[in-house]
Design a protein around this nucleic acid. Sequence first.
DNA 1: AAAAAATCCAACCGCCGGCGG
DNA 2: TCCGCCGGCGGTTGGATTTTT
Length: 394
Amino acid sequence: MHESDSDPDSDRTHWYMSNSDDESFVDKDKDCRRSTVALLLKKGPWTSWEDSILEKYIKKHGERNWKLVQKNTGLLRCGKSCRLRWMNHLRPNLKKGAFSKEEENKIINLHRKMGNKWSRMAADLPGRTDNEIKNYWNTRIKKCKNNRSPLYPANVCNDALNEDQHESADPNVREKLTNNHLEDTTSMYSAPQFSDASISNILDRRLASKDYDSIEDQRNQIEVVAKYEIPLPVLKTTNNDIFPSASIFANHGISNGNLSALSTTDALQMELPLIQFDPNNQFVYSRAYAMHLTNFALLNDQSEELLNDTDVLNYVVMKEELSGGSLSPTINMPCEAHNSMAASNELVVPQYEGDAPPLQDDFTSYFYLNDTNLSIFEDTNELFLENKLDTKGN
DNA sequence: AAAAAATCCAACCGCCGGCGG
DNA sequence: TCCGCCGGCGGTTGGATTTTT
């Protein structure tokens, strides 16, 4: 793109001596200086002339022994530079240009799963290089930060989550799915098996990201939350299917005893906003996944917007029953939902007549469930922790 | 139209692990 | 076992390009 095609000695070209001990003269590219013969090697953009030489050589001799490339072609480039040029620009079947929407979605999903493993991601994106993907992601981070938008949009992650689900570790789910019982998933919905990578790893990465400040503060808060971590109860539907507690996030609309409007998108929408945070204006919210890894999430002040945007507030947020008694928390969500507490550690999924009511447009508050009611809280940190302490103390 | 700011992206850098002598 | 070399990887840089002012 900005290669000096016809000017091999352009201003951007740098030269350095290979195999020289004169540190004051050469650049400190240790790898490229090791040569049996002292050579004046080039750095900077490749010219088309260099490209053609390299291309010809590799096509004839194959992709191996990059050191020899330099020796045999006379190119004044170290083997490492030759390899990079070939891999990223010259090798056949490379796609050029912007990523397609599909590719972008794939990158997002791959990153969700594996993090900054660019080369592994590139293996899943034919014709694309790790460098391109890395650049794309770095740009995306900046954009998302500026726009205060989620790195992992729920709608994009939906497909991947569905895939995950098909690969679910739960043999019952697998069996039902493979036995063409998909139409019956309303009554056998399986919770998305949020992998370690999908939530906690993401959160870890976010926490580790230098793009965000006050990391220590966040860690401290998480530690506090973790201290009072409480497992969610087993979720029980009206037809007595017992689901892992994680499915609490996915079970939303209930109609005539059947789960309706269930999708992994929904589940993810519940999840993903939770991992977006702005350390400058954040509050802590916690989810404890019984029998699962405990994941914590930090919400920032954009959550409100996110929640509205993604209809996350259509979800019922449930508070676990600690006392084992007969608590009947009213869940006063915009969509309105009710549930009644069954036996200890079991929640009965709320039932709707028909579809769940739509979100209220002007709904802007955060809700927090305590034992008996739902409180709107402003200073969530304080209230949350306060509540946790209270309930734990009971 | 020009300058400044923002964005893009090719290439470099440094580290690491595998391998062979 | 040690050492040097090489290839591969992820992080970073900084010049080119595009967009904004």
